[in-house]
Amino acid sequence: MPLPETTKDILAGTAGGIAQVLVGQPFDIVKVRVQTAPPGYFKGIGDCIGHIIKDEGAMAFYKGTTMPLIGVGACVSIQFGVVQYFKRLFGEKNAQRGRQGLTNVQLYTAGVAGGIANSVIAGPIEHVRIRMQTQKGNELRGPFDAVRQIAARSGVTGVFRGMGPTVLREGHGMGIYFLTYEYLVQKKLEADKITREQLPSTTSMLAGAAAGTVLWLTVYPIDVVKSYLQTDAIDPAKRRFRSSSDVVRHIYQSSGFRGFVRGIEPTLIRAPFVNGATFVAFEAMMRYLSTM
């Protein structure tokens, strides 16, 4: 009995998510440290990396990896599952009208839907990961202890802190992400007159790298705001920021527009590798599962 299409989407998305975490985690911890450090604390990316190695050791680059490995597989599987569902839905409607393929608006809409669905899980997971990445000592003994402490000190809703910018980033960002990837893939399929199953891994890698870069150029300032909210004090009485607008005002007043792109260098270096790996793993798993 063949596997249902939705099951294939979820399994392939999980493979992509695992590849994403393993490749991207060292880049991500540098990004978060640079984003949220006081102005002038680090002289640059190299200085941040040097501080981490000197003060915490090389394994610190994988701080907070447990939660992403558990959760990002789920996040990306939901993301890809929803996107694939809407792509099929739009494709069927287009076929009924005598049209082939998907429009750019449909691809963007499918990505937005996948991003919003994903954000419900991504928000808490990223909150815990950022807490683990930015702690200097061992106050948080692991991801589950982090969840326990956040819930105990700020209520269950505290785990979802930063959800506003998370939904905005994921929705618009994934719309741009999947639109860029699918546009480039379709151009390759049309130019070489090949099927999706014949798509070279190099094309998946390059299209994924391009999609990831465009994604972060589009949503990075939103991610900075989210990081500030999620590294603020766990105890509500000690927080500096009540809302995203407070963060925006603080960043602009303290650093100007440049503050909204602090830490973008490791992100842009990271994006091609992480997203290339994500789509290579996804497409490879989809090809494998198509035989089942």
Rank of each mutant, 00 (worst) to 15 (best):
L229I: 10
R240L: 07
D232L: 02
Q230A: 08
V224W: 10
S245I: 03
D246P: 04
V225A: 10
V214D: 07
F241T: 13
K238Y: 08
V248H: 13
P236N: 11
S245W: 01
R239A: 12
L206Y: 03
A209I: 00
D246I: 00
Q230E: 14
K226F: 15
R242Q: 15
S243Q: 09
S244P: 01
K226A: 12
W216D: 06
W216G: 02
D246K: 03
V224G: 02
S227K: 13
Y220F: 11
A233L: 02
D235M: 07
R242L: 11
A210D: 04
S204C: 05
A211T: 09
D232H: 10
S204K: 03
R239G: 14
K238I: 10
F241N: 12
V224R: 12
G212P: 04
Q230P: 01
V224D: 11
P221S: 04
L206C: 00
A210C: 03
D223F: 15
V214I: 12
A211P: 02
S204H: 00
G212K: 01
V225G: 06
A210H: 00
D232T: 10
S227C: 14
R242A: 15
K238R: 15
V248Y: 12
S227I: 11
G208L: 01
R240G: 15
T231E: 12
A207M: 05
V214M: 10
A233D: 14
P221W: 11
S204G: 02
S244C: 09
W216K: 08
A233P: 14
V225K: 08
A210N: 02
D246G: 12
L206M: 06
S227L: 12
M205R: 09
S243H: 05
